[in-house]
Amino acid sequence: MAAEELPSIDALGQFELTTSLGAFGRSVNFTQSNTMMLIASALVLGMLYFGMRPKAVVPGRLQALAEMGYEFIYNMCSDQIGHEGRRFFPFVFTLFFFVLMGNLLGLLPYSFTYTSHIVVTFALAAAVIVLTTVVALYLHGWKFFTYFFPAGAPKMLAPLIIPVEVISYLSRPVSLSIRLFANMVAGHVMFEVFASFVVMLAAAGTLGVVGAIGPLALNVVLVGFELLVAALQAYVFAILTCIYLHDAVHLH
């Protein structure tokens, strides 16, 4: 058997960007990732439109879903940020559902996971960090910089504490974006690897077909696990945004 005849594992090809929407997409570099973003946005807006259309006092299923999403994020904002959290509620809601829909849609076959792109997650995290910094500067002015030196800490330790605090502040967008990106990429790479195992083993004959049941079963389990990860990472992204906004509003 020559090496080139073996089906190779192309675990990263799934993250390749291509243009979408035909000639229009080619002319303005509209990628399939952006198409998925449009679908995700349409799903969120559709959920609210069709869910809230009955305006029922006793909600139906879709209305209950829309209301649960609303109240979940609303409570998260008001619990984590406090009373001022209501102003950031639309932003956190958009962020949460944008990430959640990206994660969940990515699990469908032939779709694309836009949250598996570090530039996407980093852009979202950068938006969060810029927003929190702007909010903090707007609310507290120059007092914002006392955030980097907690009150009551010994002055002797200032040369140590201030750099640590600054680095920890600046690493927030990095950790926020890499956490989501890495979780999504790892999940999809594992799908691809195990699915490739299934194909490769099945190609190897009857014994291989039996052996392929193992990775196939593992992939089935992984789908469930990835559903959990998809929801959890969207939640983590949203709640960390809320915590950062809390720091911005209250300075510790």
């Binding site: 960007l17 303005v28 570099n29 509209f30 990628t31 990732s33 952006n34 973003m37 449009l38 946005s41 969120v44 807006l45 609210l48 639309p90 932003f91 809601f93 958009t94 944008f98 836009y114 792109h117 530039v119 996407v120 852009a123 979202l124 938006a127």
Partner: peptide, 19 residues
């Protein structure tokens, strides 16, 4: 890669406004 982020910014902002 770059265009993806630019389009995302537009889509995200539009989604934010609509929501």
């Amino acid at each position: 890669i770059t265009s993806q982020v630019v389009w995302m910014a537009i889509i995200f902002f539009a989604l934010y406004l609509l929501l």
